[in-house]
Every structure is written in C-alpha cells, then in structure tokens.
Amino acid sequence: MSSGKNSGGLMSSAGLVRYFDSEDPNAVQIDPRSVVATGVFFGLGVLLLQFFV
C-alpha cells in the first residue's frame, strides 16, 4: 500500500513538459519537411554510393 507520500513520477515530469513545450523566439526554426527531405536525400545518396562502388 501507499504510505501517503507522492512518488513524484508524474509531477517530476511536468516541469520538463513545460520546459520543452515553451517556444523560444531565439531558437533555430527548422521546418519538419526539411528534416524528412534531408533524411530521404541522405538515404538515396547512401544507396547510390553502394550501387556505384
């Protein structure tokens, strides 16, 4: 049984959620489509290098 003390699991993560959810106007803004496109091009480049080498 619980001794009445809060284990802190959910409460301790609440601060991290607030920290990472905040928008910093000075932060670098990267479009998610650019990240996906970079990954696709990188993968295609690796496949082409394997094919030709």
Rank of each mutant, 00 (worst) to 15 (best):
G43W: 11
G39C: 12
L16H: 13
I30H: 01
S34E: 12
L48K: 12
V36W: 15
V17F: 10
Q50S: 11
P25M: 05
N26I: 07
N6W: 04
D31F: 02
F20E: 01
V46L: 14
S3G: 07
P25H: 02
L49Q: 04
F41G: 12
T38R: 08
N6H: 06
S22W: 05
D31E: 02
I30N: 00
F52S: 05
G9Y: 15
L47A: 06
R18L: 08
S34N: 13
D31M: 03
G15L: 01
S2M: 03
V36L: 14
S12M: 08
S13H: 10
G45K: 09
T38D: 08
F52P: 03
G15F: 01
N6I: 06
G15V: 00
G43C: 11
E23I: 12
Q50D: 09
A37Q: 11
R18Q: 10
A37G: 09
G15I: 00
M11A: 08
Q29V: 02
M11C: 04
L48Y: 12
G9A: 06
V35F: 04
L10R: 07
F42G: 09
G39P: 14
L48R: 13
G8R: 06
S12R: 13
G8K: 05
G9D: 14
E23N: 07
S2C: 02
